[in-house]
Design a protein around this nucleic acid. Structure first.
Lengths: 211, 211
DNA sequence: GACTGTGAAGCCATTCACAGCT
DNA sequence: AGCTGTGAATGGCTTCACAGTC
């Protein structure tokens, strides 16, 4: 059967599968069934199978999936065979600084190669690098072949900073500010919005414990 | 018309509307149409109207929506009329520390009332509080009426910590670790998974720039 | 004329159910 | 027997299109 692009929802789950497969590999598990994956991740087994067919027909009927093959296919699908290079803007702030020091990037095939801010220029984050001025962004993006810019700047300046990022030629942005960024170019934007998640929790609490 | 509970997707957008309405209020805008909201937030106007009817029939045909009334209704729907109290576990870490210092909580009707860790007990986060040992969680949750626990602990211990959190009687958890938490009680869990967002970006980059 | 509220239609994602391998 | 791959059925969300109101 010919497979189209996997839908957005499947892509999100691919990340989740990838982590679980890494976990299984670390426990030396060689083979896994869709039902086992579904149980571990609280999903439907049919959905797991349907998602995995976007990778090709990797399973063996009556047996299951080969963990390593599956993992490698997901890494390939997600474009993680080569390490993705990240630049963090707002690295002098608390959140930016925390991300710069996040130890999990290596394991996930990402690498922080640049730190930007308008303050604390020259300050070093051990094992990562030195904070550089955001005005250098065009040059540094090109030189270090940055794939993704992570925006950790206050909400009131994020649109302005985002405009500079667009001009730098970067094609993907991860935005931590709780605001919809307006873009005029073809640039991919994903948002991490913990405020919204907190408000969702607040709503759910309300249904248990209404006024 | 009788309205049921708004669907999950609408709740997520309520957060987004709330922020936009706050923004409009700060610019002294009194009245807004569904089309204006839709343009600003990159949504469909019919969807905005449908979402807003979950709040009741607040609009005026031919005119639009009263910004303040709309805002108050969303705050009520999301259960944010009373401030929601937050406890942060892993407050001695980089991410937990950054969240403890996040200045946006006030504006969003959340308040950090407890900081937990197993290290750096007694250390102070200015204007927030002192880091206390996680073994105190049951007592502190009850005393300070904590609504939501934010988990900023390393992936390899998060399930273990989550088990303690469940026993503490808290009813909502925001988890920053990239793993599916297994729960045995009725507890609401939302996840913030920036690793997954990064992998989504990596996938999108791949379609521009395939191997 | 402008804009809301909403049934109906359309679209996407999930789940079912079973044929097809091993 | 056990498990995958997948068409068909279902369910949920989004968008259309227009009647209803100011």
């Amino acid at each position: 059967m010919i497979h189209n692009q996997p839908p957005q929802a499947s892509i999100k789950r691919m990340s989740v599968y990838l982590r679980h497969l890494n976990h299984l590999l670390s426990k030396n598990v060689k083979c896994v069934s869709s039902a086992e994956i579904a149980t571990a991740l609280d999903l439907n087994a049919a959905q797991v199978r349907k998602d995995l067919t976007y990778l090709g027909e990797l399973g063996t009927r009556g047996v299951g999936y080969h963990v390593k093959k599956l993992r490698d296919s997901i890494i390939k699908l997600l474009g993680l065979k080569t390490i993705r290079k990240i630049g963090i803007i707002g690295a002098a702030g608390h959140l930016g600084g925390a991300l710069a020091r996040y130890p999990g990037f290596d394991k996930h095939n990402f690498k922080v190669v640049a730190l930007f801010d308008t303050q604390n220029i020259g300050q070093e984050v051990p094992n990562v690098g030195i904070i550089e001025h955001i005005d250098q962004i065009n040059k540094i993006v090109a030189e270090r072949e940055i794939d993704i810019i992570v925006l950790c700047v206050p909400t009131n300046v994020v649109q302005e900073v985002f405009n500079k990022v667009q001009d730098s030629g970067v094609k993907a942005v991860l935005n931590f500010a709780p605001i919809k960024l307006i873009s005029n170019k073809d640039i991919h934007v994903q948002n991490v919005d913990f405020t919204s998640e907190l408000e969702t929790l607040s709503f759910k609490l309300r249904t248990i414990n209404p006024e």
